[in-house]
């Protein structure tokens, strides 16, 4: 690890790290670290793909811009994590994004859930951003300097995403009767996919000190959600948890369509540059 630290001196936590910097660096992650980076990158990528739909369709123009900023942050995180992961296999971010099959994606079921109405998107945003905020807050201390550096930039950005989601949960829950009904419905549709985010497996255990143990994030996640829900007069939905498996490449039926659309052009022209 000390060796990789030495060669990664340019990438220090707090620097505005760009995917191009990671591609140009000579740090090569181990296979296990790359697998872990894939998970984080895929979550961000699939979420960005979902959020991008809202640009030109949001409830108000100001919100087009706000959701656009969030999607752009997520795509930035995805590019950094995927670029780093790709180095382990001498590939590029685009090889991973465009030429992997559905069962090779390591994202959770939560991020592939449909946008639904604005309330459902906000419910998903709330869960993702609270989870990512807790995760990146800890990842900044990772023994892997590159992961730590990516997290250092990302944590500030998802802090804002978290704030954005919380503001909207309050407004929708306490706004009108209709918005409250939709907010509750959005949370009910989202909650089955919360549990998967906090599942540990052999990879994260093996990467102790480098990866963040998902189960260790649950407590702070719950505390923040409870605080918000108390203010918004909401309750945590009591719904059965869905069977996850995204980290093993077992996805719901939504991901196939999402990837088909995302990858179609790149796959039509294999080997082309854009």
């Amino acid at each position: 690890m000390s060796e990789s630290n030495a060669s990664a001196t340019r990438i220090t936590p707090g620097n505005a790290l760009r995917p191009e910097d990671i591609a140009a660096s000579d740090v090569r992650p181990s296979e296990a670290v790359a697998e872990y980076a894939l998970r984080l990158g895929d979550d961000a990528l699939i979420l960005a793909q979902r959020l991008g739909w809202w640009i030109s369709r949001a409830p108000e123009l100001e919100e087009d811009v706000a959701l656009g900023n969030i999607a752009l942050d997520q795509i930035g995180h995805a590019r950094s994590f995927l670029t780093y992961a790709a180095r382990a296999w001498d590939k590029t971010e685009d090889d991973l994004a465009y030429f992997r099959g559905e069962d090779e994606f390591r994202s959770t079921h939560l991020v592939e859930q449909p946008n639904g109405d604005f309330a459902r998107t906000i419910a998903r945003q709330l869960v993702v951003s609270q989870y990512q905020f807790a995760l990146y807050s800890r990842l900044v201390s990772s023994s892997d300097a590159t992961l730590a550096a990516i997290a250092a930039k990302a944590v500030k950005e998802v802090d804002y995403h978290r704030d954005h989601a919380r503001q909207w949960v309050l407004r929708l829950a306490l706004g009108t009767e209709e918005s409250r009904r939709r907010m509750i419905e959005g949370l009910i549709l989202t909650w089955p996919y919360v549990g998967e985010l906090f599942e540990d497996d052999s990879l994260v255990k093996e990467l102790e000190g480098t990866a963040v143990l998902p189960s260790s994030l649950r407590e702070s996640f719950d505390a923040e959600i409870h605080g918000l829900f108390a203010e918004a007069d909401l309750e945590v939905p009591e719904v059965p948890a869905a069977v996850g498996g995204g980290r093993r490449g077992e996805h719901s039926e939504h991901l196939g369509y999402l990837l088909a659309e995302m990858q179609v052009l790149a796959r039509e022209h294999p080997g082309a540059t854009w």
Binding site: A48, G52, I55, N69, L72, R79, E93, D94, V264, L265
Partner: peptide, 17 residues
């Protein structure tokens, strides 16, 4: 949604935004 590289996707998103 169909931009052929992640860099182009980000640029296009930023532009439309």
């Amino acid at each position: 949604s169909r931009a052929p590289s992640l860099k182009r996707k980000a640029i296009l998103m930023a532009k439309v935004q």
